[in-house]
Every structure is written in C-alpha cells, then in structure tokens.
Simulated assay, not measured.
Amino acid sequence: MLRKKLVITLTTAQGSRQYTLGQLARYLIALFLLMAICSFFVSNLLLVKTSDELDSLEQGINSLSSQYEMTLGTQELQKGQLDQLSSTLQELKVERDKLQEENLRIGELNETLDASLFGLEDLLGLPPSKSMTSDRADALTVMTNQRLFFLSVLPNGEPIDGLRINDSYGMRMHPIRKKKVMHNGIDFKARTGTPVYATADGAVEFAGMHKSSGFGNLIILQHALGFKTYYAHLSGVKVKSGTFVSKGQLIGLSGNTGRSTGPHLHYEVRYLFRPIDPKPFIAWNISNFDSLFSEVKGVKWASLRKMYPLNQVLETAQQ
C-alpha cells in the first residue's frame, strides 16, 4: 500500500512535515506538469509565429509608409503641375481676351478705313463703289497723291481770304484811263494789310516795286509746267527774289500801290507769259479735278496726260 502512495516532505525552521498523496493526486500532478510542459512548447511556437507575423506586419507597414510617402510626393508633383497648368490656362485666357480685343479693334479700324476710303471717293468726286477692295484702295491712294501733287504745283484756290471780287478777267472800262481795255486778272477788294498767300509751290521771280507796269509792289511766282502767278498793288512784300515758296505761304499784304483807285489785290495766272482767266484755277480743287482740263482751253493738256496718266490708274482698277 505504501508504494501506491506519494509522500511529500516539507522542511522548515520548525521542523519537517510529511504529506502523503494518493494515486489520484499523483495523476493530477503529473497531468498538470504535462500540460504545463505542452503549454510551454505551444506558447513558444505561438510566440515564434507571432514574432514572425509581427516582423512581416512591420515590413508591410514600412512598405505602406514608403508607398504613402511616394504617393504624397506624387500628389505634390501633380499639384505643382496642376498649379502650373492653371497658371498657363490663365495666361492663355488673358492672351485670348487680348486677341479678341485686338480683333475687335482691327475690325473697327477696317470699318473706319473703309468708311474713310468711301468718303475719299466722295471727296474725289467719284461714283461710290459696291465694295472696297485692296486694288480699289491702292488706286484711290495713287489718285489722291497724284491730285495733291498737281494741286500743290499748279495755281489753285484764292490768294486772299473770303473777300469779294471787284473786277473779273476780260474787257472792262479802265477806272483811270477811261476806256475799254483788257483786264488780265481778277481784283479782290481788300483792306490794306490783308494777308496774301501763294496759290502753289514755286520760285519767286520778282518781289518789289514794279514801276513800269503800274502794278506798284508786285510779286511774280514761277510754278511748274510753265505757269506763273502775279500779285499786284501790295502794301508789303514778305518774300525775296530767287527764294522758294510753298502753297499757302504768306508772301505779301494787300494795298493800293501803283495805278490803283483803292486798296485791293490784283491777281493773275499766266501760261507761257500769256494771261489766262484765273477763275477756273480759283475754283479748282480735289473734288472737281478734271474740270480744269476741260474749262481752260489755252493749255495743251493732252501732252500733259501723256506725261502724267492722271486718272488712268483708277479707271483700270474700275474695269
């Protein structure tokens, strides 16, 4: 019976004590020890497995962290690209708005230019065009420059401002000689000292007192193509012989010098030393340009048309 019992002896300072365990208790202790040993090994296995899983999880976390940082960098890059694209689009919008404004301005300029060219046709005394083409515009420009050239070098317009005509060109009763004689010019009634202007570009042939003719103070201007103009009975002379003058330039002051019955300006137009009626030249301007060539009969205009084709450029453009 004793072999089937387990005796446990505990020794303390007070002495030794013995405990006797039965067979069942031994089995329970053995089972407990076995379970403890198994639990130890199982726990170690689980701990190793858990450690491996934690390492794997840590690696995954590190990988995710790297991917997250990479994603953040990519987002920052994309944000920078989006900001740059937005800035570029804004600049393009500004440029587009500028282009639209420029197109509108160009359109307005073209309309204004077309209106000006149509107005130029009216100024030139031409029939209106259905449309303003570039060829038509070029022809109008050539024609305008051509007319302006002739209007600058040939006598035209009044030599004195806004004053009435006393005597015209032609036969008249001379106020001093008391008989009919040829009056070679036009007399403009004017107060002494009224400004007198050159009616075309030219050179001063004579400027001063001309006693033999009775013109008193006289200015003679030489112009292109054989024309001359005379300005007589002046109270003052503002130019010198041998100098050049331009159309509209002040050349003298009206007066009553020489054989004269009152202050006025005697104005003549001569062609190759022969007096011709100044009236068509006074009325001549850019709108009635062709009128001079039909009204003034004493000049061989046909030879001038051969030298300068005049309106042929425009006539060609109209065909």
Results as ranks from 00 to 15, higher is better:
residue 217 N to I: 06
residue 299 V to E: 09
residue 287 S to G: 11
residue 48 V to N: 13
residue 53 E to M: 11
residue 180 K to T: 06
residue 201 D to S: 09
residue 226 G to P: 08
residue 254 S to N: 09
residue 175 P to S: 00
residue 99 L to F: 11
residue 178 K to A: 05
residue 9 T to V: 13
residue 208 G to W: 09
residue 61 I to Y: 13
residue 5 K to A: 12
residue 72 L to N: 06
residue 94 V to F: 11
residue 163 L to C: 11
residue 107 G to C: 06
residue 241 S to R: 15
residue 87 S to P: 01
residue 232 A to C: 08
residue 204 V to T: 04
residue 252 G to T: 02
residue 32 F to T: 03
residue 244 F to M: 08
residue 65 S to K: 10
residue 217 N to T: 07
residue 43 S to A: 14
residue 210 H to F: 12
residue 223 H to P: 02
residue 58 E to K: 12
residue 180 K to S: 04
residue 191 R to P: 03
residue 70 M to N: 12
residue 25 A to V: 07
residue 256 N to K: 13
residue 26 R to D: 03
residue 262 G to L: 01
residue 15 G to Q: 08
residue 168 S to Y: 13
residue 78 Q to G: 02
residue 124 L to C: 04
residue 37 I to D: 01
residue 135 D to L: 12
residue 315 E to D: 11
residue 226 G to I: 07
residue 44 N to F: 11
residue 228 K to L: 05
residue 21 L to R: 09
residue 74 T to W: 03
residue 288 N to K: 09
residue 56 S to R: 13
residue 301 W to I: 08
residue 168 S to C: 05
residue 132 M to T: 10
residue 137 A to D: 03
residue 157 G to R: 05
residue 128 P to I: 01
residue 24 L to Y: 02
residue 133 T to N: 09
residue 139 A to R: 04
residue 155 P to Q: 03
residue 18 Q to I: 01
residue 135 D to F: 00
residue 29 I to P: 00
residue 317 A to E: 08
residue 205 E to I: 12
residue 56 S to N: 10
residue 68 Y to D: 08
residue 217 N to Y: 05
residue 31 L to E: 13
residue 41 F to I: 07
residue 166 N to D: 12
residue 302 A to S: 15
residue 127 P to V: 03
residue 44 N to V: 08
residue 222 Q to T: 14
residue 122 D to P: 00
residue 280 P to E: 03
residue 21 L to Q: 05
residue 221 L to C: 10
residue 35 M to Q: 10
residue 90 Q to H: 12
residue 204 V to E: 01
residue 40 F to G: 15
residue 108 E to Q: 15
residue 243 T to Q: 13
residue 137 A to E: 07
residue 93 K to R: 13
residue 43 S to G: 09
residue 218 L to I: 00
residue 156 N to R: 05
residue 283 A to N: 15
residue 285 N to C: 11
residue 135 D to W: 00
residue 70 M to A: 14
residue 167 D to R: 09
residue 64 L to W: 06
residue 211 K to R: 12
residue 290 D to L: 11
residue 89 L to H: 06
residue 86 S to A: 13
residue 211 K to C: 01
residue 65 S to A: 13
residue 109 L to E: 03
residue 213 S to K: 08
residue 295 E to N: 12
residue 53 E to Y: 07
residue 286 I to S: 00
residue 121 E to V: 06
residue 310 L to Q: 05
residue 245 V to C: 12
residue 73 G to T: 11
residue 239 V to C: 05
residue 286 I to Y: 01
residue 251 I to Q: 01
residue 22 G to I: 07
residue 118 F to Y: 07
residue 296 V to W: 11
residue 145 N to D: 08
residue 247 K to V: 02
residue 128 P to S: 14
residue 223 H to L: 08
residue 263 P to I: 01
residue 153 V to L: 06
residue 45 L to F: 15
residue 115 A to S: 15
residue 97 D to S: 14
residue 167 D to I: 00
residue 84 Q to C: 02
residue 238 K to G: 05
residue 257 T to S: 15
